[in-house]
C-alpha cells in the first residue's frame, strides 16, 4: 500500500492536468452541440459522403444530426486519443522513469519484492485511469443534462466502457515495454498511442488492412461501430485483452530478473 500511495502522489499533478483538459474539452464539445445541431442537418449528408475521409473517422456510419453521432466522433477523438496518450505515458514511464532518474536503486533496495512493486504500480495505473474516466463521465453527464439531450444510456455506457478499456490496454502494453527500457520512455509511449490511432484509420480506409483492427485498441473503441451495432466488437476486444495480458506478463517476466543499474 505504501508504494501505491506513493505512486498516486507522484502522478497527482499529471493526473489533474490530463483530467482537467480531457473533461473540460469533452464538456465543451457537448455544450456547443445545440449550436452545431441547427447547422448540421444541412451538412450532415456532406460529412457522410466524403468517401474515404468519412470512412476514416467512421463518419459514413454516423449521423451528425443526432447527439450520439456527434458525440461519438468528438468524444472518440478527445477521450479516445487523449485518454490513450495519457494511459500510454502512465504505463511507459511507470518502470522506466525509476531507472532513468536513478530512483530504482532506492526503491529496489527496500524489503519489498519486485512482484509486489509491479503489482502496486499496476494498481496505481488502474486507479489513475479510473479516476480520469470517472471525472470525464461525470462532466459529460452534467453537460449533457445542461443542453437537455437524452442519449440512449446503454450506447453511451458502451462508448465510455470502450474508451476505458482502450486506455487500460494501452497502459498495460506500454507497461510491458516500460520494463525493458530506461531512456526515451515518453517518446516511445506517445508514439505507440499515435501508431494505434493511425492503424485504426488505415483499417477504416481499406478493407485489406482490416486485420489492423485486431492489433489496435481503437479497433473495438470505434464509436461508429459501437453506435451502429450497439455493442463492442467481441473479437477485437478479445485480441486487445490478449495484448494487455501479454504486456503485463512481459513486465513480470522481465522486470523480476532485470539488472537494475
Amino acid at each position: 500500500m505504501t508504494l501505491l500511495k506513493h505512486e498516486l502522489r507522484q502522478g497527482r499533478n499529471a493526473l489533474c492536468i490530463w483530467t482537467l483538459v480531457i473533461a473540460s474539452m469533452t464538456a465543451l464539445c457537448v455544450l456547443i452541440y445545440p449550436e452545431i445541431k441547427s447547422q448540421m442537418s444541412a451538412v450532415s449528408g456532406m460529412f457522410s459522403n466524403m468517401g474515404g475521409f468519412s470512412a476514416a473517422f467512421g463518419m459514413d456510419k454516423l449521423n451528425f444530426g443526432e447527439f450520439l453521432g456527434f458525440f461519438g466522433v468528438e468524444c472518440g477523438n478527445i477521450l479516445g486519443l487523449g485518454g490513450a496518450f495519457f494511459a500510454a505515458l502512465l504505463g511507459i514511464q511507470s518502470l522506466a522513469k525509476e531507472e532513468k532518474d536513478g530512483t530504482a536503486e532506492f526503491l529496489l533496495t527496500h524489503p519489498v519484492s519486485r512482484s509486489k512493486i509491479l503489482l502496486q504500480k499496476l494498481s496505481a495505473l488502474f486507479l489513475q485511469i479510473v479516476i480520469l474516466n470517472a471525472a470525464v463521465i461525470g462532466m459529460t453527464l452534467l453537460s449533457v443534462a445542461a443542453i437537455g439531450e437524452r442519449p440512449d444510456p446503454g450506447t453511451l455506457s458502451l462508448l465510455f466502457l470502450a474508451y476505458f478499456l482502450l486506455q487500460l490496454e494501452t497502459a498495460a502494453v506500454c507497461f510491458g515495454v516500460s520494463a525493458f527500457i530506461r531512456n526515451g520512455a515518453a517518446v516511445i509511449g506517445l508514439g505507440m498511442a499515435a501508431l494505434f490511432y493511425f492503424l485504426n484509420i488505415v483499417a477504416n480506409l481499406t478493407q485489406k488492412a482490416g486485420a489492423f483492427k485486431y492489433i489496435t485498441p481503437f479497433g473495438y473503441a470505434e464509436s461508429a461501430d459501437i453506435i451502429f451495432d450497439r455493442s463492442i466488437n467481441g473479437r477485437y476486444l478479445a485480441a486487445g485483452t490478449v495484448f494487455a495480458l501479454l504486456g503485463v506478463a512481459a513486465a513480470f517476466f522481465w522486470y523480476r530478473k532485470k539488472d537494475v543499474r
Binding site: Q10, D101, G102, T103, E105, F106, T109, H110, P111, V112, S113
Partner: peptide
C-alpha cells in the same frame, strides 16, 4: 532477497531520490 534487505541499510554512491 526480500528478507535480507530488511536487515540491510544501503547507501548508494549516487544519492538519487524523487
Amino acid at each position: 532477497k526480500t528478507e535480507l534487505l530488511a536487515d540491510i541499510g544501503y547507501m548508494p554512491s549516487e544519492a538519487c531520490f524523487y
